[in-house]
């Protein structure tokens, strides 16, 4: 099962990602041309590698991961060629963290983070071979979950210093208060069941934000709907939040797992959740996995508080966490 965007029409030989990026920026506010650029993708134009192997016309530069920042830079007329970050399913979470790091270290006052990945036969066959694809839409944190659903997706976020945002009269949707990243150093495709890597990433994010766990109002979990991921996350959240029944949600039952774009999309949606003071529903959730009772809900619920934690984990043992605070917009 996969959640694909319909009607992604691409020029002859170009990757579907190029069409996705076109759609992404069609209605976006202007991006400062002097912004630094960090993109995130795991496979970029892997659909063009498929075309190449099938002897069909394919624009080969689209296959290289570095072509995403080039594409975005050319489209927006930025003064930088930018870089791409690839860290499995935490790619765009790490990209946002590094963008925030560039600003915090005084090396940039505006950073565009753009992430994109598409579902192709390549990725679908691979996840199927790993026996983690659900035959029906995924059900994160549900006892009856049977794997993940892949999805197409992209997001773009402009990070700015508070001073520059005020000077340019930009709407501040949310404030990146903290970030953290870690490696399980445990297994290549399975998370450490004790959740220690994710706990470390969350701990770093809390430390940088100068907030306590009690300040977190909701958690946007990675929530893939796979057995090992969901159990690891619930364990990690229990270790961080103790007995507190904090709202936890996953958007993957609705939009699918967008791999390298997941973190960026989920940070954007968390900013929206904070703005609308609503915890999004976890689609497909019916029968709570142990530890999810009272925290995960199939319905939207009011979000009381101003701070949201978003987390992602991926192959290679990577974990990443971002803490967002409601903005003034």
């Amino acid at each position: 099962m996969a959640a694909c965007i319909e009607g992604l029409a691409t020029p002859q030989g170009r990757s579907m990602v190029t069409a996705l990026v076109e759609q992404l920026f069609a209605n976006m506010q202007p991006v400062p041309p002097d912004a630094a650029l960090i993109t995130a993708t795991t496979k970029m134009g892997i659909d063009n590698l498929e075309k190449l192997e099938r002897k069909r016309p394919a624009h080969l530069p689209d296959i290289l991961l570095s072509s995403l920042p080039e594409l975005v830079s050319q489209k927006l007329g930025l003064g930088t060629t930018g870089i791409n970050i690839s860290a499995s399913c935490a790619s765009s979470t790490i990209a946002i963290a590094r963008g925030a790091g560039l600003i915090a270290s005084g090396r940039a006052d505006a950073v565009l983070v753009c992430c994109a990945d598409v579902v192709t036969e390549f990725t679908f066959s691979g996840f199927s071979a790993l026996k983690v694809v659900s035959a029906s839409p995924c059900r994160p944190f549900d006892r009856a979950r049977s794997g993940l659903s892949l999805g197409d997706g992209a997001a773009a976020l402009v990070l700015m210093t508070e001073e520059r945002a005020r000077r340019e009269a930009r709407d501040c949707v949310a404030v990146v208060r903290g970030w953290g990243a870690s490696n399980d150093a445990f297994h290549i495709t399975s998370p450490d069941p004790d959740g220690s890597g994710l706990v470390s990433a969350i701990g770093q994010a809390l430390s940088r934000s100068a907030l306590n766990e009690s300040d977190i109002s909701a958690v946007s979990a990675h929530g893939t709907g796979t057995l090992y991921n969901d159990l690891m996350e619930l364990t990690a959240f229990r270790r961080v939040f103790g007995g507190r029944r904090i709202p936890i949600y996953s958007v993957k039952g609705t939009i699918g797992h967008t791999t390298g774009a997941a973190g960026g999309i989920e940070v954007a949606l968390a900013a929206k959740a904070l703005a609308e003071r609503t915890v999004p529903p976890t689609a497909g959730f019916k029968d709570p996995e142990q530890g999810a009772e009272g925290s995960v809900s199939a319905s939207a619920v009011p979000l009381t508080g101003d701070v949201c934690l978003t987390t992602n984990s991926g192959f290679g043992g990577i974990n990443a966490a971002i803490i967002l605070e409601r903005g003034s917009a």
Binding site: L64, G82, S86, S91, N183, I188
Partner: peptide
């Protein structure tokens, strides 16, 4: 088929818990 996977192998073998990721630039 992920360019950061061997960093996970290195993390496991050498006990490294910091983040590992690949960077792809034009140059």
């Amino acid at each position: 088929t992920l360019p950061n996977i061997f960093l996970g192998e290195a993390a496991i073998h050498f006990g490294l818990t910091g983040p590992g990721f690949a960077v792809n630039g034009a140059q």
